[in-house]
């Protein structure tokens, strides 16, 4: 039984640096199963998008070689979500927003190559929490970020059981604590 084609899917998610070099990538379709194929693909994606004249910091989009690429540049980083031509562009864009914002939350706004590399574990975990084997797992940045940091794991109070104000207090406390470090 093949998996239902109506389920939205992501073909790959990429995080490249300002020179197009890979920082963290995930591929979910067999067409890019080899490293040379992947790196060729990343090269062409980078070449097609890096010259874009659109205002930086805005989610942009392009179409080539049968794939739709939504992307956003933040500082010296380039975030990409790649889907098939048939995919709803706005869904891909929502995934990308979740990706970028969760990283921003996790790195406390310092979205740049240096901090990303220093906290690569967080970035990889975030990617794992957003897409599971090509399927959308979660797109809400706050939820992603709290899952990555295993928030609530120690206290043994599941997030679902916290009231809204509790959760808010908890988040505030976390941020305050991290700022004091």
């Amino acid at each position: 039984m093949t998996v239902d084609p109506t389920i939205p899917r992501v073909s790959s998610m990429l995080l490249l640096d300002a020179d197009g070099k890979r920082i963290a990538v995930k591929y979910f379709t067999p067409e890019w199963s080899t490293v040379p194929a992947q790196s060729a693909f990343e090269k062409s994606v980078f070449a097609k998008t890096s010259r874009t004249t659109a205002a930086r910091g805005e989610v942009d989009i392009t179409l080539f070689d049968e794939v739709v690429v939504v992307f956003k540049f933040v500082g010296d980083l380039m975030f990409y979500i790649v889907g098939t031509q048939e995919e709803n562009e706005l869904i891909l864009s929502q995934v990308l927003t979740g990706f970028v914002e969760s990283i921003s939350l996790l790195l406390r706004g310092a979205v740049e190559k240096k901090t990303v590399l220093e906290n690569l574990d967080l970035v990889l975990l975030a990617m794992d929490e957003i897409i599971d084997g090509g399927l959308l797992l979660e797109t809400d940045a706050t939820t992603i970020a709290s899952r990555v940091t295993m928030r609530g794991a120690e206290e043994n109070i599941p997030i679902a059981e916290q009231t809204l104000s509790q959760a808010y207090a908890n988040v505030k406390e976390q941020i305050a604590r991290s700022l004091l470090k």
Partner: peptide, 22 residues
């Protein structure tokens, strides 16, 4: 499960499992 993270995890995994264990 009352926790969304658990039910999502099972449901998404089930979609993958469909391929061999429908």
């Amino acid at each position: 499960d009352k926790s969304p993270v658990v039910s999502s995890a099972v449901l998404v995994s089930a979609v993958h499992l469909l391929e061999g264990n429908s």
